[in-house]
């Protein structure tokens, strides 16, 4: 795995600077947190990293994964997985369909893909829910399926956009622990943005604090 590196990253709305310039390096297997209030441009930073800045916003700076520059690549070629506050499971697909959507094409053959999905569900304590409608799962279950989906896509780094914000406190701790554990196990460089100090503490990595409307 390679480090995720941001060079002189700036996010602006029109001429107004929301955030930056930031120089961040996230080494493999580590979680770097950006802590700041709502509206500070944290989510926009992640959207820019994904290659999908909303209209009206602009950004400057460069992004690297190892030596590979991502700055101008389309989202699908960056290899950055992202998790949002909402699980964003595709409502028209069942659990297996969602996971198969994520599962890297390198896993070939129906049997092999099905086995990979079953094993993944097994590994997070959700065996046998392949055919379930995502809308019928609990919040914790959905969060786990979403996490599995992004991990199965074999990303080069993980971006977390307040991914635990909607969960009730007990589930939240469990999902958070699981997320950080799996990210570390796979040696993924992980960038977390949050306004929650507990998340930052649990991440146990470097912290960057930013204020509202600028740095």
């Amino acid at each position: 795995m390679n480090a995720l590196r941001l060079e002189a990253a700036v996010v602006q709305a029109g001429l107004r600077r929301l955030l930056g310039p930031l120089d961040i390096t996230v080494p493999p297997g580590e979680v770097v947190s950006i802590l700041g209030p709502s509206g500070a441009g944290k989510s926009s930073l992640l959207a820019w990293l994904c290659g999908a800045l909303p209209p009206g916003l602009s950004a400057m700076g460069r992004v690297f994964l190892g030596e590979r520059e991502l700055t101008t690549l389309p989202p699908e070629r960056r290899g950055l997985g992202i998790l949002f506050q909402d699980d964003l499971l595709f409502p028209h697909l069942d659990v297996a369909g969602n996971l198969a959507f994520g599962l890297a094409a390198a896993v070939r053959g129906r049997a092999a893909r099905r086995a990979a999905i079953a094993a993944a569900l097994d590994s997070v304590g959700l065996p046998g829910i392949e055919a379930r409608d995502p809308a019928t799962l609990s919040g914790g279950e959905r969060a786990r399926v979403a996490l599995l989906r992004v991990l199965l896509s074999a990303p080069g780094a993980l971006l977390l956009d307040e991914p635990f914000g909607r969960l009730d406190p007990a589930t939240r701790v469990a999902v958070r622990t699981l997320t950080f554990r799996l990210a570390r196990e796979r040696g993924l460089p992980t960038l977390l943005v949050t306004h929650d100090a507990d998340d930052v503490a649990a991440a146990a990595g470097p912290v960057l604090r930013i204020g509202a409307g600028g740095s």
Partner: peptide, 25 residues
């Protein structure tokens, strides 16, 4: 808008993401 975006970060091209996520929804 994050649904098609998620599809793309999972490796689907623009067309695939539209066809397999946006269109069905």
């Amino acid at each position: 808008p994050r649904l098609p975006l998620v599809a793309r970060t999972l490796g689907a091209g623009r067309g695939t993401a539209w066809w397999r996520v946006t269109a069905p929804l």
